[in-house]
Simulated scan of single mutants.
Amino acid sequence: MPKAIKCFVNYVDATNKVVGKFSQYLVFVMMGVLLFESISRTLFNQPHIWVVEIAQFTMAAYYLLGGGYSMILDGHVRMDLLYGRWSPKRRAVVDMLTAIVLIFYLVLLLYGAISSLEYALRYKQVNYTSWAPPLAPIKIIMTIGIVLMLLQSIAIFFKDLATARGESL
């Protein structure tokens, strides 16, 4: 593999590892927000209108930013009916084909995310709830997460290509 591809793969892997390790702590932030609301509501009879949405936004950031890291860890669901019996080269070829489909899907998803982000920024879009938070921050996070997953998909494609060719990356 050319040196530029190796650098790309290493850079994308390193970036997704850092972002993924950061995003794993967002679950604790969400739990803290929900615990705060539970205590506030039961002990002090003081419910808050913003808690559910903050928890939803935090969870969305968690799985969107952690998607690339999950791909590095091979943590996605795979039907292992035949796959486990195949040789590493055959798995790599099949993974390359599915990576192409995934890249196509993520490009379409990114197009929609950018369009949605543009709309949220242009019209100062807010959520249609009583709290009405702005939606641009979560849409920025959504777009970043999709970009990171797209880059990781391309990196995984190159890793599988190297494996299929009998090379190491």
Rank of each mutant, 00 (worst) to 15 (best):
L73I: 12
E37R: 10
P88L: 09
L64H: 04
P137I: 05
L35N: 04
I114A: 09
N45W: 01
L82E: 12
L97V: 00
S130Q: 15
P88G: 04
K89C: 12
M96R: 01
A164I: 02
Y123I: 02
I72L: 15
S40C: 10
L117E: 01
Y25N: 14
V12H: 03
Y62T: 05
A92M: 08
I156E: 14
P133H: 04
A99W: 00
R41K: 15
L151Q: 04
P134C: 07
G166L: 06
L169Y: 05
K124N: 04
R78W: 09
D80M: 03
Y11G: 09
T163D: 10
E53P: 00
S38F: 15
Y11A: 15
H48M: 13
G67I: 07
T15E: 11
P88W: 09
D80G: 03
S130K: 13
M96F: 02
I154A: 02
E167D: 14
F28C: 13
N16C: 10
S40I: 09
L150N: 01
I100P: 00
S115W: 03
D160M: 08
Q152L: 08
V101H: 02
V94Y: 06
H48P: 02
V27M: 14
R78F: 12
A61H: 04
A164M: 11
V29N: 07
L81R: 08
R165P: 06
V51A: 15
E167W: 05
M142Y: 08
M142I: 12
V9T: 04
K139D: 01
V18S: 13
Y123M: 03
M59P: 00
I146D: 05
V33R: 07
I114F: 08
E167T: 05
Q24N: 13
E53G: 02
R41I: 10
L117W: 01
S153L: 00
A55D: 03
R41T: 11
K17P: 05
I138H: 04
I140N: 04
F104H: 01
I39T: 09
S70M: 14
M79G: 06
Y83V: 04
V12G: 06
V19Q: 10
N10W: 07
V101I: 09
V19F: 06
A4G: 08
S23T: 06
Y69V: 03
N127G: 07
L65S: 06
Y11E: 13
Q46W: 08
V94D: 11
V77N: 09
C7V: 05
L82V: 13
D160V: 01
V77I: 13
K21R: 15
Y111I: 08
T143L: 12
I5L: 13
S116K: 11
M30R: 03
A61I: 11
I156K: 14
E167L: 14
A120R: 03
A92D: 09
A55Y: 03
V18P: 07
